[in-house]
Design a protein around this nucleic acid. Structure first.
Lengths: 227, 227
DNA sequence: CGGTCACGTCAAGGGAGCGTCAAGAAGGGT
DNA sequence: ACCCTTCTTGACGCTCCCTTGACGTGACCG
């Protein structure tokens, strides 16, 4: 269930939003001022923040900055001020949307759906990937077999493998690989790719002749296939 | 460089946006109507679309749906209608933001920064289309059956399918298909199209003899029909 | 009823692209 | 100056994809 933190000092708005959001099956937490909001967000991180800029204790933009210091959960700003400057400040501080009061509840809910729709699919990036019997640590630049033995890769092999792993399951074209590893002027030397893909397979695949993770897409490019 | 497609039929707005966006180092493409926008987005996908809802040829919400059929690049809607219902429809069709005219250029630019900031940091977007029992991921270049089996397509098959999917529900002429896949000098070799459409149907249609998604328009061209 | 056109299907040759082996060139460390 | 690692380059089968031709079929029309 999506967890929404509503920050506003006007009781009637707070109440209206809570009722409407609960009716749409959102889990709702409320805060009446900025300090309360930051504390609550830190202790029980929500999936979305609806933030009124006109708070009694601190500037709303500072609340945005306080949140953006450690998280990038979506923030929808409510404000009574329709000035262009206010909007720009809030959006550039890290807000995702800016709604001026008075606002329609239907509109706000649609904007809630719009921002949550986009962030729902965003997953975490991991630094360590398993390729068959091997564990690749992109940050540490190490490849370790499951029996503890280290596998050494040359700089070019690393560069190539890293691009493929950073696009798990996705095809990477020959042109892009050549461009990123060897440079803009090497866009047709596919023999380089054949050479180094063969080396990577010799080092990382159980059966280099039948690769299970470093796959060729004939005529197009290569693909790293996770388990 | 971030590529922005601006869709509007009012020359002065088009001009103002182009100048302001170019000054901020965006690459700007423009379209004056919905059909033009869909075609341009399909052939040269932008990183962001700024879309006026009041277009001469088709409903703006249908343009949003046409884009969302195969991509989830950010869409910022411009509209002269401030009604709550219009906003909800556009946002739920897949728009990321909704700005009512008249709007300040500073505000629009801030909203452009807000949506691009999020999609740039959130990693890659997944553009996935379902064709019968199969799921086509244009970005990853994969086709997966609902039972998990992979379907392999050759480069030419991909090229052809991609053009059709990027024009969902719309007729694509034989000339355009031949031109885009095989090149300018192959505009009458319709046997190529028959050959490859047959292969795509064998791989993607339940009953290749009675296609439900890869349709022939006799004498004109082919059409990808979504569910 | 017969002819034509456009589309769908099947089959086969030729060639592009891939994996592989091997050897020379370049760079860095001792 | 020498050796070792790494990168570059060339050559050679082999597989699979593209191309091409021929034939069948249904729709439309005279």
């Amino acid at each position: 269930m999506t967890r929404v933190l509503v920050v506003d000092d006007e009781p009637q708005i707070l109440r209206a939003l809570r009722i409407n959001l609960r009716a749409r099956r959102y889990e709702v937490a409320v805060a009446a001022d900025g300090a309360d909001a930051l504390r609550l967000a830190a202790s029980q991180p929500p999936d979305l923040v609806v933030l009124d800029l006109g708070l009694p204790d601190m500037d709303g933009v500072d609340v945005i900055r306080g949140l953006r210091g450690w998280t990038n959960i979506p923030i929808i700003v409510l404000s009574g001020r329709a000035g262009s400057q206010d909007k720009v400040l809030a959006l550039d501080a890290g807000a995702d949307d800016y709604v001026t009061k008075p606002f329609g509840v239907d509109e706000l809910l649609a904007r809630v759906r719009a921002v949550t729709r986009r962030t729902a699919g965003a997953g975490e990036t991991v630094a360590t990937v398993t390729v068959g019997r091997f564990t690749v640590d992109l940050a540490a630049r190490t490849v370790r077999s499951d029996d503890g033995r280290e596998v050494r890769l040359t700089p070019t092999e690393w560069h190539l493998l890293e691009i493929l792993i950073r696009n798990p399951g996705r095809l990477v074209s020959q042109r892009q690989l050549l461009h990123d590893v060897w440079g803009p002027q090497y866009q047709s030397e596919t023999n380089y790719l054949r050479q180094y893909m063969a080396q990577l397979r010799r080092k990382l695949e159980d059966d280099p002749a039948r690769p299970r993770h470093l796959l060729t897409e004939p005529g197009m490019g290569y693909r790293f296939q996770p388990e």
